[in-house]
Design a protein around this nucleic acid. Structure first.
Lengths: 125, 125
DNA sequence: GCTGGACTTGACGTCGGTGTCAAGGCCTAC
DNA sequence: GTAGGCCTTGACACCGACGTCAAGTCCAGC
């Protein structure tokens, strides 16, 4: 499989795939003519990466999952390092939710207050 | 008040203040020697900006609040344009909370499974 | 043999809010 | 007069995940 096919199969771009390779997430197998060559296992790697990115992981955080797959495990989260990242991410997400919730409450309070006050004249738009 | 004093008074940096000015958020008053000159009203402007930034507003989104203050209103959110930004931000934040909540639930599920099985179902998505 | 599409590497652009450096002007104290 | 602290403008660096352009290589089809 060439890079364009892999990109199409995973819904990403060749640029991204080269970037993942540059970051050490994808292997560098080449054909005789220098073109990159991929197989089914690489397809799984890219799907794992894209899945994690889509839910807010950083590229670096996908490494344990990718390593896990490449070391022969059936799923990327079968390894302790990956599970640890899951836990860390969960804590991060929970903290973010908390922060946003308090911001939300703050915004609601402000809106209630300005609704009560009415509007001032001569405001810039 | 010179720029260094304003920076100290607002807990920010001179670099940031010059940037705000560059973005049209702060006035450009100068002394005879070319140094920037600030007063109490500018202090309020910067405090408004920093407060909004700290709860996740972008600098551009602070503009209506700053304009509102500069047009003589006692508070930055006294003007319709500012209230509109509040509403928009509230919607954004709420959507973000929703997304993160579903990610959180997803992560928890994954963790439960790996805890139970020693292996997860594969690519999360 | 030629066209054109897919591939290669390399490098710069993006976005936001700064940090930081450079080279110089101003002002006060000693 | 000089040290040094604050000010000035200008410009590059950063982070992340790419987009995009450039110039050249490879290969299949006609």
């Amino acid at each position: 499989m060439r890079i364009g096919e892999l990109a199409a199969a995973t819904g990403t771009s060749t640029r991204s795939l080269r970037y993942y390779e540059e970051q050490g997430l994808l292997p560098t197998r080449r054909r005789a003519n220098g073109h990159r060559d991929y197989d089914e296992s690489d397809l799984r790697l890219v799907r794992e990466i894209r899945g994690l990115l889509s839910i807010g992981f950083g590229l670096a955080e996908t490494r344990p999952f990718v390593d896990c797959l490449r070391s022969g495990h059936a799923s990327g989260d079968a390894c302790p390092a990956a599970v640890a990242v899951y836990r860390r991410k969960l804590a991060e997400v929970e903290e973010c939710i908390e922060r946003l919730t308090s911001v939300r409450d703050h915004l609601r309070t402000q809106l209630d207050r300005t609704d009560a006050n009415g509007r001032g004249p001569g405001c810039p738009r």
